[in-house]
Every structure is written in structure tokens, then in C-alpha cells.
Design a protein around this nucleic acid. Sequence first.
DNA 1: TGCATCATCCAAAGCGGTTTGAGTGTGATT
DNA 2: AATCACACTCAAACCGCTTTGGATGATGCA
Lengths: 348, 348
Amino acid sequence: MNLKELATKLGLSPTTVSRALNGYPEVNEATRERVMAAAKRHNYRPNTRAIRLATGRALAVGHVIPLATRHEIVNPIFADFIAGAGETYSRNGYDMILSVVPDESEEQAYRDLKSRGSADGVILHAPRMNDSRIPLLHEIGIPFVVHGRATGTDLPYSWVDVNNRRAFQRATEFLLDLGHLRIGLVNGLEFMDFAIRRRTGYVDALAARGLSPDPALMASDEMTEISGYRAASAMLDLPAPPTAFLVASMISGMGVRRAIEERGLRMGRDISVIIHDDDLSYMKNGDDVPIFTATRSSVRDAGRIAADLLLGIIANPGHGPEHRLLEAELIIGQSTGPAPRPHAPEKA
Amino acid sequence: MNLKELATKLGLSPTTVSRALNGYPEVNEATRERVMAAAKRHNYRPNTRAIRLATGRALAVGHVIPLATRHEIVNPIFADFIAGAGETYSRNGYDMILSVVPDESEEQAYRDLKSRGSADGVILHAPRMNDSRIPLLHEIGIPFVVHGRATGTDLPYSWVDVNNRRAFQRATEFLLDLGHLRIGLVNGLEFMDFAIRRRTGYVDALAARGLSPDPALMASDEMTEISGYRAASAMLDLPAPPTAFLVASMISGMGVRRAIEERGLRMGRDISVIIHDDDLSYMKNGDDVPIFTATRSSVRDAGRIAADLLLGIIANPGHGPEHRLLEAELIIGQSTGPAPRPHAPEKA
DNA sequence: TGCATCATCCAAAGCGGTTTGAGTGTGATT
DNA sequence: AATCACACTCAAACCGCTTTGGATGATGCA
């Protein structure tokens, strides 16, 4: 059932039927209702392909996922972000198209999205420092929103980000207030923008108390269980081990916990741990009482917001870049406690 | 730059240019090369929207993701599956479109995909017993491939699945061979087809040794860290606790390990654990030596295969349903060992 | 030489919608 | 009664490509 058939059945022209269905004013209300009813009765759905061609809009948003040798993007955080963004898209009649491409053809993927007209805009994931994709998207001339920020770029762009610096600064202060002086940082890869900001927050908080960061207490790697385990193990085996850890994700946090418990120590009593919690749907940080003390910010919400921004920009290309800085909450769980009393040299 | 402009520039008709670019035989080789060169020079990309309308094909595959109150699908397994399928799609010039919809409009989402013509086929995720979506997709008349199977449906359909029964049967036998007699099953939700098959494998292996399953040693829940922890904790606190666990996923496995270590026991020595490992890119089960003994099957490969099957069916609608049953490998890690000797009653 | 064959190329008709530019009939205005 | 604005409706062009059904000239063969 297409428009023409429906029009014939109604004894109207396609023009009128199209206008009636799309809410244009120059159609008699009685006619409109008749058309609407017939459309529903015959279960008419306009063909998306035709609409796209006729209107010159793709009605779709692209997400490009490079498949690197190091699979950083296809990760749990990504899945939840997508879920959030997807909600917004389908509510607004947009499709979400995912392009999974080999690392080296990422640039071409963006160009194709534009020149072949299959997306009206894109979301840029996992920005790095001086990310070359931002100038690229500017050059291509396609609306985009960045999930995160890219230090080093002077071009304007829209973004949604968590205040990573502040979150890690607060977490560090919290640990310092508990008396912890040696705090291990188990960070993400530090060519990623968010990881740099987190480290900055950590370093700043230390500096504010007159402490200088110990390179031996700062690790940076992918956020996997294994790498969390390794980083924490190495630090715990130092002559002067940390009494607390600041960890970039829930998953690395599990590795850190394993390293702690493997040494017969107890998390929350002997060693404190704060993680960053993206509030993933299938990786809840406890139900009632959080297991980990955490800086929490829902990445799914970030997805929703990023999608909203992007659709806004697509509908209204004139608008200048927009930003949303989300604050993470610091939630207190069972993994933190006062620093253990230092072994005072026993005096006779 | 569109086809007409390019044709004008070449002094040819759009027909000929189109044919030259698409490799049709009725075009002079010299002309074809001239056209190809010009297309490259002017960086011409045919407009996808027009191709789709003209050919009546969507050149896209849909994945519908219901956003339930219980977010089962937006999970790490899904992300890796998508990555695998996405590779295949982009290699073949297809788009992947993700529809994230509220639980209750899942059916409508499939209908729309078909009637609005935005996908040539779909992949069905996370099938349950007697899954109603299979008859639905048959009725709609859209090609589809199921990731998994749906016990209880007598309609024919194409699928890709891991031999879950055999995998868990072998894992159980392996534990039995090590002398374990009480084996806890920490399963996924048992309205999911894969979970039922896994339990069957477990029960069958026990039965083959004349053992009958103890309901207190069988848990079924979402595959999260917490639920793994809870299930294992409960079982370990039984008067007759298990000496081994069979666990549905890496993530639940971490919870199980936590429960074990929290009780001062050591995984691999005091308690054996076998997990099912989907070989997720960011959740590696150890690099050199696997942490967990596991039944392993790459869900990313499954995604590739499912996509291949689907594109085949789309290109060749006549073909009957196709199946791929993947065998999981049993890999030996550090989490299993012989059952501890039972405390023999001490005789004087 | 005459005619069928073949290799090339093109005009035009779709695909299924949207949108422009007119054309009606009606009631109000003067 | 003539004029005009207004409310509706429609025919046709258009979006950018594919594909059908010729057309043209060169070639092959008798």
C-alpha cells in the first residue's frame, strides 16, 4: 500500500493525502480525518526510502566504530551509551546507523556517510588529545557531537562530557581526608582525553595538600580486569605500598580488588578503593549498599543528551556549538575507610 | 556531484555512466575507463538514498533492541556480537541499523522495519523458549537469522548458535573426572533458551554418572557480578557446600570468585570454577595462562557468521533455512583442580 | 550488395514520496 | 453584480539513481 494507491482509494490526489498526513494547514479537517482513518485502516506507512530521497534528509545518525588492534571502543561503556542515544533517536523517528570499520578506514567512513548521504549527523566517540577527527568533520561539513572533549583542538564543536577532573579531584580529597597519603591511580589510557583530565584532578588534589605525585603510584592502561589486577599488584608489592586506590572503571576495580584480596588484605578495611562508575545496566555497583565507593555518572544519560543535542543541531544548523558538562556524584560504598594507623616505631 | 552532472561533463548519458560504474557488459571498455577515471577525479559517490529507492532495496540490516525493565540485551555480549556482524556488513556495503525501542513496542519495530522499507533483513537476539518473535517475523515476511535457538517453535528458521548443551556437559564431566561430586550451577535466566540448554548439559552429565541434581545447587539469574556473588555465597553456606562451580559468564564468575575468597578459600585449590567465556575483547580471560578454566566460544565470530548467513539469505531468498552450530572449546586455566579429599572420619 | 548480428549508447519511464504553482468554488465586500 | 480573498484541491515537476526498450552504426556472412 503506497501513497498513490491510498489516494486513488480515497478519490483524492497524492498531494492532498500527503499533506493531510503530514499536518499541513491547507487541508480541510474533514478530509484530513478521512485520510487519517483510511491510512490507519489500510495500515499505510510511508516508504522511508522515498521520503529520504524526496526531502534530501537521511533521517539517520551515524556512529563510526573503528576496529583497532586494541579494541577500545567496543566496550561496555559504548553499549550503554548507544542504548541511551538510541532511545532518543527512535522517539524522534531517526535511525541509528553503526559503521564498524577497520581502523585505517575510519576517515573514509565519515566521508562516505556524508557524500553518499546516509546520515544527517554523527556522534564522535572516545576523543583523544588533538583528535584529528574534529578538523576532519569540520572539513566534511557534517553536524556532529563529541562524547567527551578533545584538549588541543581550537575549533569549536559541541560536546557532552562528565567533569572528569572535578570527579577525580573530589575522590582524591575524600581519600586524603580519610588520612590516606599514598594513593595509587589506576587510570585508563592516557592518550584518551578523559584519562588526562582524571589524572589532572588527582594531581591537583594532591598538590593542594602539598603532596607531589609518585610516578610509581600512577598506572595507565586499558580498563580491563587484568590490567587493573596487574597495576594494583605491582603497587602493592612496592616497599611503600599505597593505602588506597583510585580506579578508572568498575571492571578494573574488580581486578584491583582481586589483587588486594589475594594478598590477604581486605578492601575497605586495609585498603580503600574508589572507582568511577558509569552506572552500566548490567554491571551495577551493588543494589542497596554500593560495593565500591564511586564517582558515578550515567553514560546512558550521556547518550540521551548527546543525541538530543545532535538532533537539535541538525534541525537548526545555525545554532552555535552547545555543551553539557555533567557532574559525577560521589557515592559512598563499602570500599573506603580511614587509613590504617602507620606502624609507629616501637619505643622501649 | 551527481550522476547527471558527471554524465554531462563526460558527454555521455546517465544510463551509460551508471552502467559503466556498475560493471554492466554493454559498455565499451575504453568508455568505462574514461568514466571510472572521471568518477574518481571528481570524487563521485552515488547517492545511497537514490539507489535504495530505485532498486527497492534498503541495503541495511536491522537489529532491534528492546529496552526492558530488565536490561538483558544491552550487555557486553551484545556489543561484541554487533562488532562482529558490523564488520561483515560494511565489507558488503550494507548498513547496520539499531532500533532501541521500549519493550512493549518491539513488535511494532519489526513491522515498521519491513513496511517502511528500511531494512532488508534482521537479526533476532536473545531468543527465549517459544519465542513469539519467530512466528511474527515469518508473518511479516522479512528475512532473518536468530542468534541462538528457540526451543518450542516448529517453524523453520536460520540460526547460529553455540552447542551450549555439549559445552556444559563436557565441563561437568571434566569436574566429575576431577572428583567433584557437588557442583553448583550458576546459570543465566532460565527462560532464555541458551540457559536451558546449559542446564540440560549439566544435568545429563550428572545423570550419566548416576548422580541426581540437587536443586539447592542450581541458581538462575541475570549474569551480573552481584548475582554470581549471591548465588555462590548461598551455596557455600549450605551444610554440604559444593566443591566446584559451573558459571554462565565471565562476569558472574567474578562474583563467584569473590564469594569464594571472602570465605578464606582459594579458587582452583579449595573450590574449582569453570565459566563460559564469550571471548569478549575487553574482558579477556587472562593473556597467557587463562585465569578461569572455561568453555570458550567467540561471540564476535558468531556475529560475523550470523551476518554472513543473513546477507546470503537476502541475496538468495529461495534458499532454505541455514544453521551453524559452533562448538565451544574447553580451555584449562588456573581455576580448576582435583576435589579436596573429604574429611575422613578420624578413627582412634 | 543485402540483411542479420552485434556492440554501444541513449531517451524515457519508473521508484514513492514532497513541493511548487495553479486552478477551482465559496462567501464576503463594495 | 462584479470583485476579491480565502479555503481547498490538484497536476506536474522533482529528488538521483536504475532499468527497459529502442536506436545507431559497424561488422559478418551469404
